[in-house]
């Protein structure tokens, strides 16, 4: 082995796509190393699904028009999981900042937003896994998806958009949080938001105050649209537009504030 060369050199400074790919690879690898977190992200949704269908389902569906509660609740579980999975990005980003590795990345000749892109792509990948598993288990226990191929694509596309929006909000929160512990508080907030929506029960079954909150909850139009699409129905145009407006709106707010906070952190 020849001696290690320590002679100074000038690095090529231009940021490349290869940088971003390397950072995406880093975050995917991290996801596979946090086995407890990954198992929780995969097992929790399936357990919630089984609990809602078999424990609460009988009582809930007694008062509902839907033929079977599993048909109603699948989109709710998917969105709950997606929001929760996305929100853990806040902890990852906060970890990078307090741990010092963000400083290293930012002092390297790369576009440092690639670090964040890595986390966002990893979040999408983790959610694709958990969503796929929830739907597979749901189909096994009698979820009667009547969707055409186009319906599936539209439903999953909307879920992906929702995940993307929640992930970018999580990134902004992770950058502004004082540390990973503070950022993890956000994951709990996100975990509870879907309960006051049409994700698990129809909103008109709630007391009037909660009903109005639930009608304005962004999860409601998204859940209603995904539910209709998966069951092979045509969702109301106004519902789909509301769902898209919320997702795109939250995505823009998250993306822009993450960018501003990232720059201000200098």
């Amino acid at each position: 082995m020849t001696a290690l060369d320590l002679t100074p050199r000038v690095a090529s400074s231009g940021p490349t796509t290869s940088d971003t790919l390397a950072l995406v690879g880093r975050c995917l690898r991290r996801s596979t190393r946090q086995l407890d977190t990954l198992l929780l992200a995969v097992a929790l949704p399936v357990m919630l699904l089984l609990m809602f269908v078999y424990v609460f389902g009988g009582a809930i569906s007694a008062g509902m028009a839907h033929a079977s509660y599993v048909d109603f609740v699948v989109p709710g579980i998917v969105l709950l999981t997606a929001g929760y999975g996305a929100s853990s990005t806040a902890v990852d980003v906060a970890n990078d900042i307090t741990g010092g590795i963000m400083d290293r990345f930012r002092s390297m000749p790369i576009r440092s937003t690639g670090v964040v892109t890595g986390h966002v792509v990893a979040s999408l990948a983790r959610n694709a896994l958990s969503t796929g598993l929830v739907i597979a288990v749901a189909l096994l226990i009698g979820f009667d998806a009547g969707a055409s191929f186009g319906g599936w694509v539209a439903a999953l596309g909307l879920v992906a958009l929702y995940v993307l929006a929640m992930t970018w909000i999580a990134v902004a929160i992770g950058i502004s949080a004082s540390g990973p512990e503070a950022a993890s508080g956000f994951t709990f907030v996100i975990l509870f938001v879907p309960y006051v929506s049409s994700a698990f029960v129809p909103v008109d079954s709630m007391p009037s105050v909660l009903e109005s909150i639930a009608r304005w909850n962004p999860v409601t139009p998204v859940a209603d649209s995904v539910r209709a699409l998966l069951l092979g129905h045509t969702p109301a145009t106004s519902t789909v537009l509301a769902a898209l407006a919320w997702c795109v709106g939250l995505l823009v707010v998250g993306r822009v504030s993450a960018g501003l906070l990232f720059r201000r952190a200098r």
């Binding site: 390397a22 690898r29 190393r33």
Partner: peptide, 27 residues
Amino acid sequence: SLTGQYAAVDDLLTGEENLRLMARLSH
């Protein structure tokens, strides 16, 4: 190259993976 007060390495990756990542990002 900056070495800050806190070890700026990825805890979840191995030592080798950390250096491979940084080697790629250093162009």
